Simulated scan of single mutants.
Amino acid sequence: AHSEVPVKPASRETAMELLETMAVRSRAEAGVIDYRVTVDLEDPNTFRIIEQYEDEAAFESHESSTHLDRFQSEITPCLAEEAELTRFTVTSETALPGP
């Protein structure tokens, strides 16, 4: 999954703290392969969350977690506009030389 989280410039520091806490808690969940927060190089007030789960059950467990509910209520006042979540279903993965 990929989330785009646009925050108000005045709320950036608070949002960063909330996102960092959310990432640490989410990576500790069973079935979470990775959960990373990044900053958009072109818009430093846009954060991106890259999430990877072992299976559907792990994703559903994360979506119903108490810390996600708390995060969503705490981050809402920081948002410049509504956050967007895109979910991907991956059936295979191939490593390629990059970039």
Rank of each mutant, 00 (worst) to 15 (best):
Glu4Lys: 10
Pro6Trp: 03
Val7Leu: 01
Val7Phe: 03
Lys8Ser: 08
Pro9Ser: 05
Glu13Trp: 06
Thr14Ala: 14
Glu17His: 12
Leu18Thr: 07
Leu19Asn: 01
Glu20Gly: 14
Glu20Cys: 10
Ser26Pro: 08
Arg27Met: 07
Ala28Leu: 04
Glu29Asn: 06
Ala30Cys: 09
Ala30Lys: 11
Val32Ala: 00
Ile33Thr: 05
Ile33Val: 12
Asp34Pro: 09
Tyr35Ala: 02
Val37His: 06
Val39Thr: 05
Asp40Met: 03
Glu42Met: 11
Asp43Val: 02
Phe47Cys: 01
Arg48Ala: 08
Ile50Leu: 09
Ile50Tyr: 05
Glu54Gln: 05
Asp55Thr: 02
Asp55Gly: 05
Glu56Ser: 10
Glu60Val: 08
Glu60Ile: 00
His62Trp: 03
Glu63Asn: 12
Ser64His: 08
Ser64Ile: 09
Ser65His: 00
Ser65Asn: 04
His67Gly: 00
Leu68Val: 04
Asp69Glu: 13
Asp69Tyr: 06
Phe71Gln: 09
Ile75Gly: 01
Thr76Trp: 11
Cys78His: 08
Leu79Asn: 02
Ala80His: 01
Glu81His: 05
Ala83Tyr: 07
Glu84Ser: 09
Glu84Thr: 12
Thr86His: 14
Arg87Lys: 10
Arg87Met: 05
Phe88Lys: 08
Thr91Phe: 15
Leu96Ser: 13
Leu96Cys: 11
Pro97Val: 13
Pro97Gly: 06
